[in-house]
């Protein structure tokens, strides 16, 4: 093949747009990284050192990670059986459910959190009586955790539902279910041993998005008064210059690490499901 014909085959414009897109994402990140190193020329990573030494950083970071994992777990428990059942038995309900899952895009988080505070800051009574069953959820730590995880589940629902639904579209859910049933499997076995493993990469994508939303979320955490990583970063950004830049860069690295792990874990699975 001659040099000219090779040049003609070279996808010039594809590369141009790829480089423009990559620069758009990478330049701000590089700028943030570069800025985070300029605090003290003698100690280049001083902003990182100070951030990691801060007790509040670790406490809020670990707490937000636990919240994220809980949100992912409960979202999977809610959304996988729902999406599965809709695909299997209620395809006519799909449009309605898709509409519901899009609601968090329309209703801002501030509306959601005010609605939650309005309803759950009152005690739970036996209907039509003054007999109290439980104190308001906003009054104790476990109750607030339940509220914030529920709120995060709503915020993450569009991403989680779509990931799971797309994953289910790639496998023949109905026939696999019937095959498993004819072999004696019950619903629990079908979902845990057939459906979940076959949508593993879709679940991981949904989980990553949920994780990213929860760890950086500010509104719900601030108004429910919990010491999460989002409000911590927000406060830090208002009072300090270099540490927020360092932590933003660390957040990016963590996200990329998670994406790399997803690729690593789901590589073989995607091939198997695709071939089927």
């Amino acid at each position: 093949m001659s040099f000219l014909s090779r040049l003609r085959r070279f996808p010039f414009w594809s590369w141009v747009w790829f480089i423009v897109g990559a620069l758009y994402f990478i330049l701000p990140l590089l700028a943030t990284f570069e800025f985070s190193l300029t605090w003290d020329p003698a100690i280049p990573f001083k902003a990182y050192q100070r951030s990691f030494e801060d007790k509040d950083f670790w406490e809020t970071f670990i707490y937000s990670n636990v919240l994220a994992l809980a949100t992912i777990l409960f979202s999977i428990l809610l959304i996988v059986p729902t999406a599965y059942w809709i695909r299997l038995r209620l395809p006519e309900a799909r449009r309605i459910v898709e509409f519901i899952t899009l609601m968090p895009f329309v209703v801002p988080a501030i509306i959601l959190v005010f609605g939650m505070i309005r309803i759950y800051s009152a005690p739970f009574n036996v209907p039509f009586t003054d007999i109290q069953i439980m104190q308001p959820l906003t009054n104790f730590k476990a109750g607030t955790n339940v509220l914030i995880i529920s709120g995060y589940m709503v915020l993450a629902m569009p991403y989680m539902y779509r990931s799971v639904d797309t994953g289910m579209r790639t496998v023949d859910i109905r026939t696999l279910t019937e095959a498993a049933q004819s072999l004696g499997a019950n619903w629990f076995v079908i979902i845990s041993r057939i459906i979940l493993p076959n949508i593993r990469s879709a679940l991981l994508s949904g989980a990553l998005l949920t994780f990213a939303i929860v760890v950086g979320e500010v509104t719900l955490a601030s108004f429910l008064g919990v010491d999460a990583f989002g409000p911590y970063l927000f406060l830090l950004g208002q009072h300090r210059a270099y540490e927020p830049a360092a932590l933003s860069f660390v957040s990016f690295l963590l996200t990329w690490l998670a994406m790399g792990l997803i690729q690593l874990v789901s590589g073989g699975q995607g091939q198997a499901a695709g071939a089927h």
Binding site: D172, T175, L176, A180, G184, I194, N198, H276
Partner: peptide, 15 residues
């Protein structure tokens, strides 16, 4: 039911 079934699309579990 203890009835075995074979499908046109094989329906083998990909995982």
């Amino acid at each position: 039911r203890n009835v075995g079934m074979i499908f046109q699309s094989y329906a083998l579990f990909p995982n």
